[in-house]
């Protein structure tokens, strides 16, 4: 339990730092922007209570918002992300009998499941994020293009990150 807590704290700090200091400056012409920090919410353990999950998601979003100067925007997106995560895990994990696994990482859950999981959750997060950022219906098409391209970018970075720590987790 203590180990999980420490791992998650370190993960949180590293992801937030890389998001704020590195990925904030990376993007393809405001069209494709990576938000890798949501990997923290994605990788929280299966057994986490809903209320704690929401609080952590909200807190993560607010932390990013403080650095991005968009107070409440990432928090809203992360809250939705937490809800989608609960629904998605309820629909897939219970049916497949993975309930005893500690956390939904690539090494434990397999490549197919993880890609599916990451794409769905990232898509909803980015959808909320970009639509509330533009905050108007008239730019719907542009917003959707941004959502899709950013989802692609974020998921790509997630897979790279996961593969980088892949062997380590298998060994564990």
């Amino acid at each position: 339990m203590g180990k999980v807590l420490i791992i998650n704290i370190i993960r949180f700090i590293v992801l937030i730092a890389s998001q704020v200091f590195l990925l904030k400056n990376i993007g393809y012409y405001n069209l494709s922007i990576p938000y890798l920090y949501i990997l923290f919410i994605l990788l929280l353990p299966f057994g986490i209570p809903n209320i704690l999950l929401f609080l952590l998601a909200f807190f993560t979003g607010i932390t990013i918002d403080i650095f991005y100067d968009t107070l409440g925007l990432n928090a809203a997106a992360c809250t939705v992300l937490a809800f989608v995560r609960i629904v998605f895990i309820n629909l897939t994990v219970q049916r497949d009998g993975f309930d005893n696994e500690p956390d939904p990482s690539l090494g434990i859950m397999g490549f197919r499941w993880f890609v599916f999981y990451a794409v769905i959750l990232t898509f909803f997060h980015h959808l909320i994020l970009f639509s509330f950022e533009s905050f108007k219906f008239s730019e719907m098409g542009y917003t959707l293009v941004r959502v899709l391209s950013s989802t692609l970018f974020t998921v790509l970075l997630m897979l790279i990150t996961e593969f980088a720590f892949f062997s380590k987790k298998v060994r564990k």
Binding site: N50, I51, L71, G72, A76, T79, V80, F83
Partner: peptide, 20 residues
Amino acid sequence: AFFLLIIFFVTSLIILVKNN
């Protein structure tokens, strides 16, 4: 989960609209 979503989401939206 759904009620928590509503609570947190509305809170975020209020913060969003108030501060931006």
